[in-house]
């Protein structure tokens, strides 16, 4: 009787743990599958021309250079606005405010803003940057929109990186008559830099893949030539992928896979970069 009870308990355990293992497999295998499938299908379309030429025949031939460049500009524009504001806001929140109801409210706002749907930021950008500031459907308006969205992330990561710097370092500096700002500048920020950098890279990677907001603020499927100024309309990889896969009938499938592969390569490259920075710092 006792023996069979123990047997049953171990059988239950074996079944349960197998179910758990299957769950994990269900998470991991599709990811790997998608990546392999994407490489296998998109690889053939990756050519020098594909990466360096402009599209022709309504995107059915030629390359995707304007879309790649547009995305690069968007990433740079986003980080240009989101990083300095985010870092300074992070410094402000961690070093210059005291814990009270207002800081708690601000922290809550930031945490929750990270969860606001990206399409809502698109609406914000449309109302404020495209129409309100009259920037039009431009690279600049799109960058500002994506930056507004990235702010929650850059503030959070900067603040956390700054707060992770041990207070002993601050005390050691203040105790020899170094002012608060100099302490931040020369002791705290160098220590927090890798964390801030990781956040910045992830924010850029996200900006590269973000589609919904730039639909709202006016990415274009095809524009003649490369973007010349921040006030030009622009193409972007994710929007290009959306259009070629969902809106253009008769689009050759290599082109779709090629665009998807280039986009995911860019995004993942930045994710991996962030991972490397994080691992390197953890070791130190």
């Amino acid at each position: 009787m006792k023996a069979s009870n123990a047997k049953r308990r171990y059988l239950t355990q074996r079944v349960a743990i197998s179910v758990l293992a299957v769950s994990l497999a269900l998470v991991v295998i599709p990811v790997i599958g998608i990546i392999i499938y994407m490489i296998a299908n998109g690889y053939s379309s990756l050519s020098w021309e594909f990466l360096t030429a402009s599209p022709s025949q309504a995107g059915k031939a030629g390359g995707i250079l304007p879309a790649i460049l547009g995305t690069v500009y968007l990433m740079l524009g986003t980080i240009l606005f989101a990083l300095p504001i985010g870092v300074m806001a992070g410094i402000y929140l961690s070093e210059y405010t005291r814990a009270n109801w207002l800081t708690r409210l601000i922290n809550m706002a930031i945490v929750n803003l990270a969860g606001v749907p990206s399409i809502v930021f698109g609406l914000f950008g449309l109302a404020v940057f495209v129409l309100g500031l009259n920037l039009g459907m431009s690279l600049l308006a799109a960058s500002l929109t994506l930056a507004a969205q990235a702010l929650a992330m850059t503030i959070t990561t900067s603040r956390e990186a700054i707060m992770a710097v041990p207070k002993e370092y601050r005390e050691g500096s203040l105790a020899i008559g170094v002012s608060r700002w100099q302490t931040i500048r020369h002791v705290v920020l160098p220590q927090a830099a890798p964390g801030i950098l990781t956040g910045a890279i992830l924010a850029m990677s996200r900006a590269a893949g973000e589609t919904a907001p730039i639909i709202v603020v006016g990415a274009a499927f095809l524009v003649g030539g490369l973007p010349g100024s921040p006030f030009d309309r622009f193409m972007a990889l994710p929007y290009h992928l959306y259009t070629v896969s969902a809106h253009i009938p008769g689009m050759p499938s290599e082109i779709k896979w090629g665009v998807a592969l280039v986009l995911i390569a860019m995004v993942l490259l930045f994710n991996i970069l962030a991972g490397i920075v994080r691992i390197k710092t953890r070791k130190r």
Binding site: V28, I32, S205, G209, P238, K256, A260, I264, G275
Partner: peptide, 20 residues
């Protein structure tokens, strides 16, 4: 890292995978 990779997939790529 594989799970983190998945979180980095842009939603448009997931839409594309769903589509095709």
């Amino acid at each position: 890292p594989v799970v983190e990779l998945l979180s980095g997939f842009p939603s448009v790529v997931m839409g594309f995978i769903g589509l095709v």
